[in-house]
Design a protein around this nucleic acid. Structure first.
Lengths: 257, 257
DNA sequence: CGCGGATTTGACGAACCTCAAAGCCAGTGG
DNA sequence: CCACTGGCTTTGAGGTTCGTCAAATCCGCG
C-alpha cells in the first residue's frame, strides 16, 4: 500500500474499496530534484500535491535574505489543499531531496471529496493535522530553548516518519543541514552545531554518516524537550456512515511514541 | 450586516440570499466573560464557533508554566473548524475581553457546507486565512527582532480589525497586557515594555489610556517590520457556479493597508 | 486614601549571534 | 592513487539581544 494511504490510515480505517474514487482520479507523478522549487511564493496554484518519496520544505524568505522554514513535508503529506480556495501562494516549497510527488488538479480533487464522505474525512484529518503541527511549531520556537527545540523537532520528524512509512526505525536519516535546522527553529547554524554537539556529549543522540541521526533514549529526550504526541492526532477512528466514531480499543496517549 | 458576514465578504461576494442556508441554522449565542475558557485542551469539541464581539486567545501551556499564545481571535473569526474531524483540542481558548460567540453544532454545520457551494467556499477561505496567519506567526517569532515582532503584530491586528468591522480606524484599542504580547511573540513582559517604550520614543506608536494604541505612520512601521498584507489574502473573488473566479478589478498588493 | 494589578526601570546574567579560521568530507580530475 | 576543490561543520573569541530579579511607579477602583 502506498505511503500516503498508510499515513491517512493513521487516523481513519479505509478499505481498498473506499479508495476507489481516489484511484480513478486523473493525476500524474512528478519528480523534483533536490533544490527544485515545487511552488514559488506568488504562484496561483490549481493543484493538490501528495509527497510519495523524499522531503520538501515550506519556507518564507525575507527581503534581507533571512529564511524561515515553516514546516517539513514528508512522504504521505498532502499539501496545498489551500489551493482549493484559489489563492496565491504566500510561501515557497522546495524539494530538499529528490522527491516523487503526485499532482492532482484542484477541481478534480474537490469533486472527489464531494462523492466520498470517508475520503473527505480522511483528507480533512490531514489538513487538521498539518495545522496542528504549525501550532506546535509556534510553541516550539516561541517558548523553548535551543536544545528543547532541536530535540522536539527530531522527535516529531521521527514520529511522522514512522507514521507515514509504517517502519519502526530507530535510526532516522535526516537530510537536513545545520542551516536547515537553524532556519526551521529560529536559530543560527553555528548555534545548532554547538547545541547538537552538546547533545551528542550528553548521550541524547548519535550521528552517523550521511545525516543519520539516532535518538538514544526517546523517553528521556521527550522529557527534556517536553514532547508529547497529542498534537499529531494519531488516534485511530472508524468511519461509520460518513461520521467518524472514536475507537475505544486504541486509547493511548503517547509520550515519545 | 453582522461582523462575520462582513469579514467573509473580504474574500467572497455573497448576497443576502447566499446566506439563507446559514441563517436557518440551529445555533445559539453564548457570552463569555474576560478570562473565561471557551475551549480547554483535551476537550472533545463538537461545535463551530464564530466570534461576534470581543477578543479571545488560543494558547498552549507548558508543564512549567510557560505559555505560548498561538493566535488571536477577533470579531468575525471562525474557529474549531477542526472539530469537523472530531478530534480532541490540543490547545486552549480563552476570552480576554467579554466575548459574544455564535455556537453551531459541527454536524449541522457540515450539512450546510454540503448544500451551499458558495458558503463552503467562504468558510474554506476563512480556514485558509487562519492557517496563513499561523505561518506568518512562525516567521514572525522565528526570524524577527523584538521591535519587528511587535510592529508586525500590531499591523496585523489593525488590518484584521479593520477587515472585520469595516471601520477604517486609526486608533486601535488593544485589550492586551504586556504579558499577552510577550507570550504571543516569544518574549518577556519586561522586554516588551522596554521595546514599546523605545517605539514610543521613536514616534512609531503612541499609547493612550485603556490600551489604546495608535500607529503613527503605518507605512514606516510596515517597512521597519517587513509587514506585507499578502498573507491575509484580502483580494476579493467572485463566486460563479461554486468555483471562485478572480476579479480583475481588484488587483492591489498592500503594504500596510 | 489605600489596595492590587500592570508597567516601568535598573543592574546584572545568560542564551544566542557574528565573524572568522580551521577541519572534515565527498566528489573530481590529473 | 593522490591532490584539489567546494560545501558543510566545528571551534574560538567577543558582542548583542533578550532574560531574570527586584524595586519603584503608575493607575483604576473601592
Amino acid at each position: 500500500m502506498s505511503v500516503f494511504k498508510k499515513r491517512l490510515g493513521q487516523y481513519v480505517s479505509l478499505g481498498e474499496d473506499d479508495w476507489l474514487p481516489f484511484d480513478e482520479l486523473d493525476h500524474h507523478e512528478q519528480v523534483y530534484l533536490a533544490g527544485d522549487d515545487i511552488v514559488q511564493a506568488g504562484d496561483e496554484i490549481r493543484q493538490v500535491f501528495i509527497v510519495m518519496e523524499g522531503w520538501a520544505i515550506r519556507y518564507r524568505l525575507l527581503e534581507d535574505g533571512r529564511r524561515q522554514i515553516v514546516n517539513f513535508m514528508l512522504p504521505g503529506d498532502v499539501f496545498d489543499l489551500q489551493s482549493l480556495a484559489d489563492l496565491k501562494a504566500d510561501h515557497s516549497l522546495t524539494a530538499i531531496t529528490e522527491c516523487k510527488v503526485l499532482v492532482i488538479s484542484s477541481s478534480v480533487f474537490v469533486n472527489m471529496l464531494q462523492t466520498s464522505a470517508s475520503l473527505a474525512s480522511a483528507f480533512w484529518w490531514s489538513a487538521v493535522q498539518e495545522e496542528s503541527i504549525l501550532r506546535e511549531q509556534i510553541v516550539r520556537i516561541g517558548r523553548r530553548s535551543a536544545r528543547e527545540r532541536i530535540g522536539h523537532l527530531l522527535l516529531e520528524l521521527h514520529r511522522r516518519f514512522v507514521g507515514a512509512t509504517g517502519m519502526e526505525v530507530e535510526r532516522l536519516t535526516v537530510p537536513l543541514t545545520r542551516a536547515d535546522i537553524a532556519d526551521a527553529l529560529g536559530l543560527t547554524p553555528v548555534h545548532v552545531s554547538r547545541t547538537m554537539s552538546a547533545m551528542r556529549r550528553a548521550d541524547l543522540i548519535t550521528e552517523g554518516r550521511g545525516g543519520e541521526i539516532t535518538i538514544v533514549d526517546r523517553a528521556k529526550l521527550a522529557r527534556l524537550s517536553h514532547f508529547d504526541t497529542d498534537y499529531l492526532h494519531l488516534k485511530k477512528l472508524h468511519i461509520t456512515s460518513g461520521r467518524p466514531v472514536r475507537d475505544a480499543g486504541e486509547a493511548q496517549r503517547g509520550l515519545a511514541d
